[in-house]
Computed example of a mutant assay.
Amino acid sequence: MHLKQYYIHPDRCTRCHRCLAVCPADAIELTETGKAQIRNLKCIRCKACKKVCHQGAISYRVRLQF
């Protein structure tokens, strides 16, 4: 089975927190350094965070799950 997971590239995140503000599922949290990270178990894959990220820091990766 394929599982799409969203991921925030820490080297591209500029800490603008736009993604945090638009996430309807409250699936984005901040790390100790203030960068955003997605909790995929809560993510509803609406792509709202990806649309507002001007840095292109949010992408998805497909993981195989057996």
Rank of each mutant, 00 (worst) to 15 (best):
D26L: 08
G34M: 00
G56F: 10
A57Y: 03
C19R: 09
K47P: 04
P24D: 12
R63V: 03
R12G: 09
K50R: 14
N40E: 07
V22F: 10
S59W: 01
C16Q: 03
K42G: 08
K50I: 12
C13H: 04
T33N: 10
E29A: 11
A21H: 13
Y6K: 11
C23M: 00
T31Y: 01
L20V: 11
Q55L: 12
R63L: 02
H9M: 04
C13F: 05
C19Y: 11
I44L: 05
G56Y: 00
Y6A: 08
F66V: 03
R61F: 04
R61C: 05
S59K: 08
C49M: 04
K47Y: 11
L3S: 05
T33F: 03
C13G: 10
C49W: 06
H2I: 14
L3W: 03
R15Q: 07
I38K: 05
A21V: 14
L41F: 07
A27Y: 05
R15G: 05
F66R: 02
R12Y: 13
Y7R: 10
R45G: 07
R39V: 13
C46V: 13
K35M: 06
R61H: 06
K35C: 04
I44T: 12
Q55D: 14
I38E: 00
C19S: 13
L20K: 00
H2M: 10
N40D: 08
T33G: 03
C13Y: 06
T33E: 15
I44S: 08
V62I: 04
C46W: 09
I58L: 13
A36E: 08
K47W: 09
Q37A: 03
R45F: 02
E29L: 11
D11N: 15
I44Y: 00
R12M: 13
A36L: 00
I28M: 08
H9F: 06
Q5G: 04
N40T: 07
A27V: 01
C49G: 05
C46K: 04
C53N: 08
Y7C: 07
D26Y: 02
C46A: 14
A21W: 12
K47H: 14
V22I: 14
